[in-house]
């Protein structure tokens, strides 16, 4: 059984076919990159599967169950988590409280009204461990709004990870950060995700990053899947090269002109 299967998934905004009849199967443990030019429908696809948008038609099957009509919170509880292209944090809470909240929520403890949050040693230990995994232990008591962009990106992913999802969508986790930080962020994400066996779908523009980290690459264009395959297969696909970088031929992706 596949982890996720979308069947004829569609999402239109007027005349714009943001997600156009997408049939995609994702297996457990895969690290998939979702690529395509701006407006290809990558983020819209993530939004529909994570219930940020409702689909116009089609089905979303997660672990054999039809979750097409499930709410955001139901899908989160089922094991689908995500981070956001524009960092989405609890800005007036500390980095620690951001992560701790995700853990409290996962454990169903946010209903607890009569105990002090900081007295929960289990959650405290786990939140500190997550911050440590993402290299944010030193920023534990800083407000999220005060963190640097790269740290905010990592905290955004850490929040999704703290939910212990089975499938995580990471929407441009390295956008807006320097090339040097990009490598660090992706190394951290890849080691955590692969280490825990979490299935990841990463929306990314930087093809160097995509080729380096992905098991499989899915190329979208005008809301539909144009091609999919291993990094080696996509590297050789001239149609993909033409759409993504505007040139084709052997080693088109390697040229830095």
């Amino acid at each position: 059984m596949s982890l996720l299967e979308t069947v004829h998934l569609k999402k239109y905004f007027g005349d714009t076919h943001a997600v156009d009849d997408v049939n995609l199967t994702i297996e457990e443990g895969e690290f998939i990159s979702l690529v395509g030019p701006n407006g290809a429908g990558k983020t819209s696809f993530c939004n529909v599967v994570s219930a940020y948008y409702s689909a116009d038609s089609g089905k979303i099957i997660f672990q054999g169950e039809d979750v097409s009509n499930a709410s955001v919170t139901q899908r989160v509880k089922a094991g689908i988590a995500r981070s956001f292209q524009l960092v989405n944090l609890f800005d007036d809470l500390t980095a620690f409280d951001n992560v701790a909240l995700a853990i409290f929520s996962r454990e169903g403890k946010t209903r607890n009204i009569a105990a002090l949050a900081r007295r929960d040693s289990e959650v405290t230990r786990e939140a500190d461990a997550v911050l440590n995994q993402f290299g944010l232990a030193g920023k534990r008591n800083e407000l999220a709004r005060g963190l640097a962009q790269g740290e905010r990106k990592l905290l955004d992913v850490a929040l999704a990870y703290a939910l212990r999802p089975k499938l995580v969508f990471l929407d441009e986790p390295t956008s807006g950060v320097s090339t040097r930080d990009k490598g660090q962020i992706m190394d951290t994400i890849a080691s955590v995700v692969r280490g825990e066996g979490i299935t990841a779908v990463v929306v990314e523009h930087d093809m160097d990053v995509v080729f380096k980290y992905s098991d499989r690459i899915v190329v979208m264009h005008q809301g539909a899947i144009l091609a999919q395959g291993t990094p080696a297969e996509i590297r050789k696909n001239e149609q993909v090269a033409m759409i993504l970088i505007g040139s084709s031929g052997p080693d088109a992706f390697s040229r830095k002109d």
Binding site: N88, L89, F90, D91, D92, L93, D97, A100, L101, F104, S105, K109, T110, R111, N112, I113, A114, A115, L116, A117, R118, D120
Partner: peptide
Amino acid sequence: HSPFGKALQAIRDN
């Protein structure tokens, strides 16, 4: 200061 209170603050922020 409870987990519930933290959830409210999270809702306030985002």
